[in-house]
Amino acid sequence: MPTQPLDALDVKILECLQADGRITNQELSEKVGLSPSPCLRRVRQLEAAGIITGYVALVSPDQVGLTISAFVRVRLNQQDEKHLDIFETAVAAFPEVMECYLMTGEADYQLRVLVPSLSDFEDVLRRLTRIEGVAQVTTSFALRPIVYKTAVPV
């Protein structure tokens, strides 16, 4: 639940910015039906509230040579605070790890890893297994993406 209620204009602003983060305030204001000053004020409020957390360029992994996408499930031998912290700190330093989630179920963590080759993945795997407390690592390789979204449904 957002810390502030979103009205229809806020939702429209968020949808427009998620579709095109480089849209000018003038263009945005025209799309949402506001004059530029109130539109910019609303965007700044959404940023200040932490609803908009930043702006990025989306890069095609294949176009930059990152053709191997792996989903890695990690089980720790102990799930106490110490071992969770050790793992989370270590994995945050891996540039190849695009996402990492603390999970319920059979694995403690699920990671999405992007690398250029299987030998590079082997290197990531070796570094992962050296982290204190890692008991088991299981990997599935993605063949191709079916659904990939960056826009949050608001």
Rank of each mutant, 00 (worst) to 15 (best):
S117G: 08
R127F: 01
D120T: 08
L102F: 13
L102D: 05
E99V: 12
Q110W: 07
T129D: 07
G105E: 06
Y101I: 09
T129L: 08
D108K: 02
S117T: 15
Y109H: 03
Y109S: 00
A107E: 05
E106R: 14
L128V: 02
D108Q: 03
V113D: 01
Y101W: 14
T129W: 02
E99W: 09
Q110K: 10
L128N: 01
F121G: 05
S119F: 12
V124L: 03
D108T: 06
L118F: 15
R130A: 09
Y101G: 07
L128R: 00
T129F: 06
E106I: 12
R112I: 08
F121I: 03
A107R: 06
E99R: 14
D120H: 15
S119G: 07
E106D: 14
Q110F: 09
A107T: 06
L114I: 04
Y109I: 00
E106Q: 13
T104H: 12
R112F: 12
A107W: 04
T129M: 13
R126S: 11
S117L: 08
L118D: 10
T104M: 11
S117R: 09
L125V: 03
L102R: 15
L114P: 05
R112W: 09
V113K: 06
C100M: 08
C100F: 04
L114F: 14
L102E: 08
P116E: 12
D120Y: 11
R127S: 05
P116W: 10
L102K: 14
R112T: 08
D108H: 13
Y109W: 05
L114H: 10
D108P: 02
D120S: 15
T104V: 09
S117N: 08
Q110L: 14
E122F: 12
Q110D: 06
S117V: 07
M103Y: 02
G105A: 09
A107N: 05
Y109M: 03
A107L: 05
L111T: 06
F121Q: 01
Y109P: 01
T129P: 01
L111P: 02
L102S: 14
R127W: 00
R130H: 08
C100G: 04
T129Q: 15
V115C: 07
L114A: 11
R126Q: 13
E122S: 14
V113C: 04
M103P: 02
Y109V: 00
R127V: 00
R126P: 00
R130C: 08
V113T: 06
R130S: 11
D108W: 00
V124E: 02
R127Y: 00
D123S: 11
L111R: 03
L128K: 02
L114C: 04
S119T: 15
L118K: 09
Y101V: 11
L118M: 14
E99Q: 13
G105D: 03
E122V: 05
L114T: 04
R112M: 12
D123R: 03
L125Q: 12
V113H: 01
L128P: 01
Q110A: 14
S119N: 13
E99C: 04
P116A: 09
E99N: 11
F121K: 03
D120Q: 14
L111C: 11
L102V: 13
L114W: 05
L125I: 04
V124Y: 00
A107I: 02
E122P: 00
Q110E: 13
F121H: 05
L118E: 09
L111W: 01
E122N: 13
D123E: 10
L128W: 00
